[in-house]
Design a protein around this nucleic acid. Structure first.
Length: 529
RNA sequence: GGCUGCGUAGCUCAGUUGGUUUAGAGCGACCGGUUCAUACCCGGUAGGCCGGGGGUUCAAGUCCCUCCGCAGCUACCA
């Protein structure tokens, strides 16, 4: 196991507000980062914004702003969202940062000198009124502009190209040698079949039709193609080719660092094909893993004619808490597959897992400890009742499975484990019937039951910590457990909790009225469109 | 059109390399139990020609072919 982890989200494009899909990706990454920190690794977590390109230039213009003003404003919204979700990134990089621009220019010059980038002409279908180039498939058989439907002409412009063709064999070899480089594998197959097999062309890496980008120093009027610009953020953020490259040495060059890019399926091509090629051309190592997650799709029962609905995560966080939103995002969709956001599921997930199972278990446990043991958690007595052994066995299994799943980036599966332990604990109460033990003055068994419940709550809360940011601390407070025990270290042995003074507080999560809240979220979805 | 997936209980989904005689989970529905608890928790029941058709096999939700439906990608939008 590597000592260090460098983990990144894509840098999002600030042409519009971020929606719950972006939040999904970032929360997922954040949870992985937090887990690894807890597991004792040195973690560096990067996110940011991809601010150049034609679309930004256009959107700024129609908003009557300079591109810089426009992105400054939009990026503010990014920060707000990540703050609300309490994303634990170590750096937020913007492609308009001077250090990033400098690195992009140095890389471009380097590859130009090396011969990996050359000047040529880009030829394609051009629509004069729209000032845009289109591909064969886009203009179709009739050669019409897909935007304005007018005829296009064959035209060419000067452009720099990256010799992608020369790196195809290297890439295929790399795929073969590292079967987990792109996960899930179906994404790799897609890349090979769609782009490589039909013959990959060299990539046009400069643009002249607009100016909002990183200027190419060698040639007036050319800016770097946004995707090349954007991908470089992963190393410019670490100070590659700058005076201060300490982070780069530590988190990229060091063999003990695992590098994971988390990304959505829609941008696999750039991450899985061109980025590895560029890195190879620069003589740098490749990331360990390109983790392609599914998309969170929106669904609106009634108005399917209006295109995809967009949910703004901010009001959700404000109404239901950061824990609710983070838990939902992490729990609802399984790795690799797409998922669907529905108001019903959001409310249900919250009520069932967090309110009924988790919060309620704490509540009933604390009440019983207060009632039967004057609020002092009994010291762990070993296995006393006939149900204790099985329960402890399960706790150990849960911890094991949790770790294994996280090591394989199976976040959803990992987080289900502590919930299983919570459910088992609820059942354990029914099995042992503490109220009968109390009536019969069977203090020994009663103590064991309370001890096991407290310990299971403790274990589950530690395991839920990467996803839930508030509830575990609140639970610790109510059980009188010091914060320093909130660490993986202490889970190695069962029964560390005991002797603490509990203090009943508010429920961890308030129960939601389903119909009311579903309606609230539905309204939210409508207003947003 | 091409490529990659998907289509399994009312809903959301699991189902490793084909094989524990009755295909699973959660939620919802129904019935019962319990009282420590946020009308919560526990147990049970109902509900599936595993998209249609064909094939391979001793054996297919799982492999092959085909058809239907849906989604994403298809190279200067990022």
């Amino acid at each position: 196991m590597k000592k260090r982890l460098y983990i990144t989200t894509p840098i999002y494009y600030p042409s519009a507000k971020l929606h719950i899909g972006h939040a999904y990706c970032t929360v997922l990454t954040d949870i992985i980062a937090r887990y690894n920190r807890m597991a004792g690794k040195e973690v560096y977590f990067l996110t940011g914004s991809d601010e150049h390109g034609q679309k930004i230039e256009e959107n700024a213009q129609s908003a009557n702003k300079t591109p810089q003003e426009f992105v400054d404003e939009m990026v503010q919204g990014f920060h707000t969202l990540w703050e609300k979700l309490e994303i634990s990134h170590d750096q937020f990089i913007r492609t308009t940062d001077e250090k990033h621009i400098a690195t992009v220019q140095k890389i471009f010059s380097k590859l130009l000198k090396k011969g990996d980038i050359y000047l040529d002409k880009y030829e394609g279908w051009y629509c004069t009124p729209c000032e845009s180039f289109w591909t064969d498939t886009q203009v179709g058989e009739n050669h019409l502009c897909p935007e304005c439907n007018r005829p296009v002409i064959r035209a060419s412009e000067e452009s720099y190209f990256f010799k992608a063709k020369e790196y195809v064999n290297f890439l295929l070899k790399h795929y073969k040698k590292h079967d987990k480089f792109i996960t899930p594998v179906s994404r790799k197959n897609e890349m090979v079949n769609t782009f490589i097999k039909p013959g990959l062309n060299d990539l046009a890496v400069s643009r002249t039709s607009f100016s909002w980008g990183v200027p190419i120093e060698e040639k007036e009027g050319h800016v770097v193609y946004v995707w090349v610009d954007a991908l470089i953020n992963y190393i410019s953020a670490l100070g590659y080719l700058s005076d201060d490259d300490e982070l780069f040495q530590k988190y990229w060059n060091d063999k003990d660092t695992e590098i994971i890019h988390v990304l959505g399926a829609d941008i696999t091509r750039f991450h899985a094909i061109y980025w590895p090629m560029i890195l190879k051309a620069l003589g740098l190592r490749l990331p360990t893993r390109e983790f392609v997650h599914g998309l969170l799709l929106m669904k609106d029962e009634k108005m399917s004619k209006s295109k995809g609905n967009v949910v703004d995560p901010v009001p959700l966080i404000e109404r239901y808490s950061v824990d609710a939103v983070r838990y939902y995002l992490a729990r609802e969709t399984t790795f690799g597959n797409d998922g669907q956001f529905t108001p019903e599921q959001f409310v249900e997930r919250f009520n069932v897992d967090l309110v009924n199972d988790y919060g309620n278990l704490l509540n009933r446990t604390v009440t019983m400890i207060e009632k039967y043991f004057a609020g002092i958690i009994p010291i762990y007595p070993g296995r006393v009742t006939e149900f204790d052994a099985e329960l402890e066995l399960m706790a150990n299994e849960v911890i094991e499975n949790y770790k294994n799943n996280f090591e394989n980036l199976k976040v959803t599966e990992a987080l289900i484990e502590p919930i299983k332990l919570i459910s088992a604990s609820n059942k354990y109460i029914d099995n042992t019937k503490p109220w009968e033990l109390a009536a019969n003055n069977d203090t020994e068994k009663l103590a064991s039951v309370m001890s096991h419940l407290a310990n299971n709550l403790y274990i589950s809360s530690v395991l839920l910590k990467p996803a839930l940011l508030k509830a575990p601390s609140e639970l610790f407070k109510q059980l009188g457990i010091p914060e320093k025990l909130m660490d993986f270290e202490y889970l190695k042995k069962y029964g560390v909790i005991g002797g603490q003074q509990v203090a009943k507080g508010e429920p961890l999560f308030p129960r939601l009225k389903v119909a009311e809240e579903v309606e609230f979220i539905q309204k939210l979805m409508k207003n947003n469109d």
